[in-house]
């Protein structure tokens, strides 16, 4: 019991130190390793493209189907686009995009860095005078941070497209009306922070994924375990960060008087 507690305490301090080191190295990564950064960005953004588009489409379609059934009861199905847009843009879209990326990259990063550790590549880099955090971690973390907000916009758009598709097939609104209604309740003060906060989610995913890989033991089995841990931890990290960020954002928006 005490041993477990000590271990988790040790892991937490280790993660905090690791995160601080990685965050300090982020600006340097842009200047010193643009090639690596672009490589990683392409891997995160374009690699997740199909997944995100498909997920957004599916969410849009399904939300439309569920809402339509309810709203028709009260004869207010014309307000569906407004509700759908707010539901997707404010919370579902950002969280879903982050979770998808967490699923893909939490495992990917952990497995990649875990096997680099296993094959002693990490040690070789250290010997060559290339410290592991700025060389390997920073470009990956930065790529995640930058890519997730873009993917969020994409998931929002594809969810609206999915809703529109469902409306065209089974509904009554014209595309023009759908487009007009969709922005009825949307406030920039809700959507812009909601989209930008996914940058933090990306950061969390990158940090947790890399850390889980680097701290894996040197065995094939351990690499697999690290991959699983990377997914679970980065998803939990996204949820936790969301809980912390939402009230913070609301308080900030309130404080600066941004009301529309």
């Amino acid at each position: 019991m005490r041993q477990a507690l000590r271990n988790s305490l040790y892991a937490t301090t280790d993660f905090v130190r690791f995160s601080a080191e990685a965050l300090a190295g982020l600006p340097g990564a842009v200047v010193r390793r643009p090639g690596m950064l672009i490589h990683q960005f392409e891997r995160v953004a374009l690699g997740s493209l199909a997944l995100v588009l498909f997920a957004g489409m599916s969410i849009g379609l399904v939300t439309w189907l569920q809402l339509h059934r309810l709203l028709v009861k009260y004869g207010i199905e014309a307000t569906l686009p407004s509700v759908l847009a707010v539901a997707v843009m404010v919370e579902t879209g950002p969280v879903l995009a982050s979770l998808l990326v967490a699923g893909r990259l939490g495992a990917g990063l952990a497995a990649e860095l875990g096997s680099m550790n296993l094959t002693e590549e990490v040690d070789a880099l250290e010997l060559l005078g290339a410290p592991v955090v700025p060389t390997l971690v920073c470009p990956r973390v930065l790529a995640c941070t930058l890519a997730v907000p873009f993917l969020t916009v994409l998931i929002d758009v594809s969810a609206l497209a999915g809703g529109l598709l469902a409306e065209l097939v089974a509904g009554t609104l014209s595309p023009q009306l759908f487009g007009q209604r969709a922005f009825d309740f949307v406030r920039l003060s809700d959507v812009v922070p909601a989209t930008l906060k996914t940058g933090v989610f990306g950061l969390v995913i990158g940090l947790i994924g890399c850390w889980s890989g680097l701290r894996a033991e040197r065995s094939t089995e351990a690499v697999g375990r690290a991959a699983t841990r990377g997914v679970v931890r980065s998803m939990l990290g996204v949820f936790a960060a969301n809980v912390i960020l939402v009230p913070l954002i609301q308080a900030t928006v309130e404080a600066i008087g941004w009301k529309r």
Binding site: I38, E42, A45
Partner: peptide, 13 residues
């Protein structure tokens, strides 16, 4: 360990 900038990836990104 510098990574060369791949033109294809740059354009795509």
């Amino acid at each position: 360990m510098r990574h060369a900038i791949s033109p294809r990836k740059l354009v795509l990104s």
